[in-house]
């Protein structure tokens, strides 16, 4: 495994001599949102972590993209936060309730919640992400239909809830229930090569972060900014959508969203980004 330190810098310097690429990255800069919220985008990794330093995907994006995230008026993802807030306050389902009926002001009740997900759910016997928790509340507490994967409302509400943890360090509880065995499975998957191109998550995000693959500046593949606003798609992209896209790019069949495989991967990948601030809605290319 290679850290984006001296080695990558040397490789970059070499490559720059040979090409017309213009960059100097991961950008050495600080992310302060609206000049107020100081974000942790580079943190020392835990001892058992494959990296020495955990780095947010923000550092690997262009100056323009980074600027969009630093200014909440310019950040297109903020529209989805507003949309999520509306849904939060909208009555739906047979019980005549909205999320707010039980959880009141999300700024209080949901503060820090997003930073601690995925979280063990005893009743379901598996880890829940925010999307699954929303669906559980809709079904069990509102008498409403669960959202289908990537329904616009699901993305907006998830973005809204995660945004209530903006700036909070990602910190998940692996001691709860069977979280550790899900982490183990996620780690296995992370290092398993898939598809005709025969690539594992680690091949790209651990071995070559800091390098360019086509136009893409490879990051460590952290989850702290999700759902993220992707300029390419002009839309919010959920974490499981991103996972599926990365797996598809190896020319492999990809698992269903919220399947055990992708939940295990979410537990593991989120752990890799522990200590980074929640950036939702992050802006990516």
């Amino acid at each position: 495994m290679r850290t984006p330190g001296i080695l990558a810098a040397a490789a970059l310097a070499l490559a720059m001599g040979a090409t017309s690429l213009v960059f100097a990255e991961p950008a050495d800069e600080e992310l302060v949102i609206d000049g107020e919220i100081e974000m942790q985008t580079r943190v020392e990794a835990a001892e058992d972590h494959p990296f020495d330093e955990v780095i947010s995907g923000w550092h690997y994006r262009t100056e323009e993209t980074r600027a969009l995230e630093a200014d909440s008026f310019a950040n297109p993802g903020m529209l989805y936060v507003e949309e999520g807030e509306e849904i939060w306050n909208t009555v739906e389902g047979s019980q005549g309730k909205s999320c707010a009926s039980c959880h009141d002001d999300a700024a209080e009740s949901m503060a820090g919640v997003g930073a601690s997900y995925p979280k063990w759910n005893e009743e379901a016997g598996k880890p829940f992400n925010i999307e699954l928790q929303i669906n559980a509340c809709r079904e069990q507490n509102m008498g409403a239909e669960p959202y289908k994967f990537d329904a616009p409302q699901q993305k907006a509400l998830t973005t809204f809830i995660k945004h209530q943890s903006l700036g909070e360090p990602v910190d998940i509880d692996l001691e709860a229930g069977e979280m550790q065995s899900w982490w183990d499975r996620g780690e296995d998957l992370y290092y398993t090569r898939t598809g005709q191109l025969d690539l594992a998550c680690a091949t790209c995000h651990e071995g070559y972060n800091g390098q360019y693959i086509r136009a893409d500046h490879l990051s460590q593949g952290n989850a702290n900014g999700f759902p993220t606003y992707r300029l390419k798609q002009a839309n919010m992209v959920s974490l499981h959508n991103r996972f599926r896209g990365c797996i598809r790019d190896t020319r492999a069949e990809f698992p269903d969203a919220f399947s055990d495989e992708l939940m295990a991967l979410e537990v593991y990948v989120t752990w890799r980004g522990e200590g980074l601030s929640v950036e939702t809605p992050a802006v990516r290319q």
């Binding site: 598809g195 005709q196 191109l197 091949t203 790209c204 190896t250 492999a252 069949e253």
Partner: peptide, 26 residues
Amino acid sequence: DQTIMPAFYSLDVGINVREDLKGKTI
């Protein structure tokens, strides 16, 4: 084994190869 460069003429590749590409080289 650790190289990122795909094997362009091999069937010894990753798991869960896309259905329509099974048994085919790149």
